[in-house]
Design a protein around this nucleic acid. Structure first.
Lengths: 215, 215
DNA sequence: CGGATAAGTAATCCACCGTTGACTTCATCC
DNA sequence: GGATGAAGTCAACGGTGGATTACTTATCCG
């Protein structure tokens, strides 16, 4: 029906691999999970994080999330109150995305590289993806803006010498987000297949150009 | 009802200014537009471009678009066939986004700067925004991927000397998209208020680091 | 055991939205 | 002026999806 659902993810991007929609068929007989509120709640949270990161807020229904876990959708409302509150909780785990900013300036490039090209499926990375995919929501935009403002514009920029430190900090954030977007959402060929080693030289040079202002 | 509609855009980003939802109240009495299929069609296309760029595909209803123009929603289907086809036509105007790539290498930074910081409200710019905001649709992702692959990975990269030209070309694309995203969608403070002059030095240095490989 | 309580379910409501087809109104031309 | 066809409208259908309520079932503890 909906002409926009993800039916053919066969465009060869290594970043998209998990089965998109079939909602966990639970073969080998579901062992009828024990009743455990805390476990169910965190399972819902994990499923939601994945869905939101993969399909975005709008393309993820509460029924989808509940089906992934194998419970009734009403539980989402029991445990989180609303779809929106659930998303908030997912997004709240995006803290620490820019943890590499706390490294010494000359180590930032290296740490950033590792963040981008190595451990892609960390929960905070998924949270960021979820927010990027859901940026048509005003709340999400606000949250993203605050995240960048705090970590980059307000904090990191103070460590930069030279003119326009805030702008340069945000330009770094832009690069970071652009890379994540192209790698994990759009699935651009070179960025998808690149290794940390291949990108190393380039990333170092660009970050140096941004962080240091020597002529 | 919907907790996600744009109700408080008062977060001070100069890029968001047009009234978001009230759908053109048409004060001073609508002068009952003359019947003109071509004019109505292009008015619908223009309204759709704006809406899609501002709110994304999912948050834009066909009724919204028609209301902006002041006609009945059924006309969208008469002139475009479906909401999806309308979006395709909007997205098709995104060609030429990376037109600055055809400039001589040492002029690329300058042209790019002008594209980013000067004429923001061009139709192709809006088309790109519309696609960024609608990236949770697989078709849109495919289109974005093709756009970047053709203009950056396949064409522009051939003009780059040094190792990993495709990767470097896509890293430039990532930066571009990240900047556009932060400036026009997220509304990050420094990027929003920056002028082309302030960014000039920085953009030149970074593009130089990406495009030339001299040690 | 057996009742109390929390975990989980089923069924439903309601609003929104894409889409359609039948209807009305305006302009043009004989 | 009146027929014709295109431009535009109206009202409805069908589906989806968030949210709610009343119900059922498992688990725990005296």
């Amino acid at each position: 029906m909906n002409p926009l659902d993800r039916s053919k993810p066969t465009t060869g991007c290594p970043a998209h691999d998990a089965a998109p929609t079939p909602a966990e068929p639970a073969v080998t007989s579901a062992p009828r999970r024990k009743r455990d509120a805390a476990a169910t709640r965190s399972a819902l949270l994990a499923a939601a994080t994945l869905r939101f990161a993969q399909d975005g807020y709008d393309h993820t229904s509460v029924r989808d999330i509940a089906a992934d876990v194998g419970v009734n959708q009403a539980l989402v409302y029991r445990y989180f109150g609303s779809k929106d509150a659930l998303f908030e909780e997912v997004a709240a785990h995006s803290a620490g995305i820019a943890s590499f900013l706390s490294a010494p300036l000359d180590a930032v490039a290296d740490r950033m590289l590792r963040h981008l090209f190595q451990n892609e499926r960390r929960p905070d990375g998924s949270a960021l993806l979820a927010m990027l995919q859901s940026a048509s929501h005003d709340e999400t935009r606000q949250r993203l803006r605050e995240l960048i403002r705090q970590d980059f514009t307000d904090t990191f920029a103070t460590r930069l010498a030279g003119p326009e430190p805030e702008l340069r900090a945000e330009l770094l954030a832009a690069w970071l987000i652009g890379i994540g977007f192209l790698r994990s959402v759009v699935g651009t060929p070179a960025l998808c297949s690149a290794t940390a080693e291949q990108a190393d030289r380039c990333v170092r040079r660009v970050t140096a150009a941004l962080l240091y202002d020597h002529d």
